[in-house]
Write a protein that binds this DNA or RNA. Structure first.
Length: 428
RNA sequence: UCCCGCGUAGCUCAGCUGGUAGAGCAGACGGCUGUUAACCGUCGGGUCGCAGGUUCGAGUCCUGCCGCGGGAGCCA
């Protein structure tokens, strides 16, 4: 059996290709059968006088998404999409398909998500998920190439990551358990064992968000590096993001074309990225007439304004303490702030990375936990890391779907995960 | 949780200031040597989201509920 992607090398040769019917156009004496096999799409030409009566009858009755094996000869022909087509001699029906719900036309979001298991076959969806897979591979390759050790962190947890209000709770043999919303505390633990580590997996947030940038289950990669300060952290993020974009440009050209992505917007994504402190950002926002009070966290509107100042992703660093999580290290130069950064993607895609240097001083960390009213006993093991050889370290979390959403230029990140989990959507 | 918008055929939608429903696609049948979401013709297909209300009369106006979409907050 041959694959569609190999057909240009098999010109004038007889082949058999198996796949699914994208469309059939039947005329009086000739029919066109468009076949998708997962490696590509090819048009088969069936001439009535050249095939058996049974074959013609089968071809003219084929429906969208029927699975078939098609035998024929590969021909170069300018009229064929892709330049090559199949002159069909015989067709075998493998699996019939009656009244396939998704038509080659506009559909509503709800309908498409209800049929996500079938929607995956559509060209835009295949392109988006292919880019996702490439970016995932790029993540592993980049970190492997820099001697990071992958640490798989638990999904069922007793400890708490950030804020307790947004956790999915479940029963664990009579005990309360939570689905992990970050693997950070665990990679911090593995840091003294391997120096550079990362985790990459699904995370869960019970936030009732209804925006194009939110999922309740999303994938996050979280590198953590010993002896790295906040600046080192940003430099790593910059190289990391550049590498992902490079890989997408290098290996997903056809997919980005299907998606209609403006490649010049991606080609400008090269280091160094601009770095602007929270204080500078607030100053500039106010100078531009947007009233914004120092101390508040930046909202979606402010993030978009800031990212529009630049042609590539931008770091906003050292936010006020109150706006950020308890584990971030106090800024010695300005104790109102912490050593942290967000990375804002261009074109309104918002925050794709949140990172920080971690608080490595036991007393300060404990004080912060108490200030936030967090359950101290849940963090006992985490505090141990500051008792037994504490060390400066930094890390960050990059949201995969947001990053791929930005790279592909899709309007909503729900399309960049095979089976999105959203508020009100658990199926299919 | 809050704000805005939308629920009409399997799908995407039209239906003006109230007079009990229409198109395209999909499906079935017929026609057409090369189409690119082919085209042309014929046919079948509807508790107008649900429940009340106003009215002689409601898809259309009002109220409530449900569902969906977009945004805010929160975050990646």
């Amino acid at each position: 059996m041959s694959q569609v992607k190999d057909l240009p090398r098999l010109a004038e040769q007889p082949v058999t290709v198996s796949g699914w019917i994208a469309s059939v156009r039947v005329h009086a004496r000739v029919a066109f059968v468009v076949l998708r096999d997962g490696t590509g799409v090819v048009q088969g030409v069936v001439v009535k006088s050249a095939v058996s009566e049974d074959t013609w009858a089968l071809v003219t009755s084929l429906t969208q998404e029927s699975c078939v094996a098609v035998g024929g000869v590969v021909r170069e022909d300018a009229r064929a999409p892709g330049g090559y087509e199949l002159t069909v001699s015989d067709v075998e029906l493998i699996g019939a398909s009656d009244e396939y719900p998704i038509q080659p036309k506009e559909h509503g979001v709800e309908f498409l998500l209800d049929h996500r298991h079938l929607w995956l076959r559509s060209s835009m969806q295949r392109a988006g998920l292919k880019v996702r897979a490439e970016v995932e591979q790029a993540i592993h390759d980049f970190l492997y190439g820099r001697d990071f050790v992958r640490i798989d962190t638990p999904i069922l947890t007793g400890a708490i990551g950030e804020s307790a209000g947004t956790l999915f709770e479940t029963d664990y043999f009579g005990e309360r358990a939570f689905l992990a919303q970050t693997g950070q505390l665990y990679v911090e633990s593995a840091c003294p064992a391997f120096r550079k580590v990362y985790c990459f997996g699904p995370t869960f947030r019970a936030e009732k968000s209804k925006t194009r940038r939110h999922l309740t289950e999303f994938w996050m990669v979280e590198p953590e590096v010993a002896f790295a300060d906040s600046n080192d952290n940003m430099t790593l993020q910059e190289a990391f993001v550049c590498y992902m974009v490079e890989r997408a440009l290098e290996r997903c050209g056809p997919e980005l074309e299907v998606l209609g992505r403006d490649l010049s917007r991606l080609e400008s994504v090269v280091a160094p990225f601009p770095r602007i402190s929270y204080c500078e950002a607030v100053e500039r926002l106010n100078a531009e007439g947007r009233k914004f009070e120092w101390g508040r966290d930046l909202g979606a509107v402010e993030e978009t304004l800031i990212s529009d100042w630049f042609d590539r992703p931008v770091f906003v660093y050292n936010y006020p303490k109150e706006a950020k999580a308890f584990y971030m290290k106090e800024n010695p130069a300005d104790p109102r702030t912490v050593l942290c950064n967000d990375l804002l993607a261009p074109d309104g895609y918002g925050e794709i990375i949140g990172g920080s240097q971690r608080e490595d001083d036991l007393d300060r960390l404990l004080a912060r936990i108490r200030e936030e009213g967090l359950p101290e006993e849940a963090y006992e093991w985490y505090l141990d890391l500051r008792k037994f050889g504490t060390f400066p370290h930094s890390g960050f979390g990059l949201g995969l779907e947001r990053t791929v959403g930005w790279i592909t230029g899709r309007p909503h990140i729900r399309e960049l995960v095979p089976f999105p989990r959203l508020i009100n959507r658990l199926k299919p």
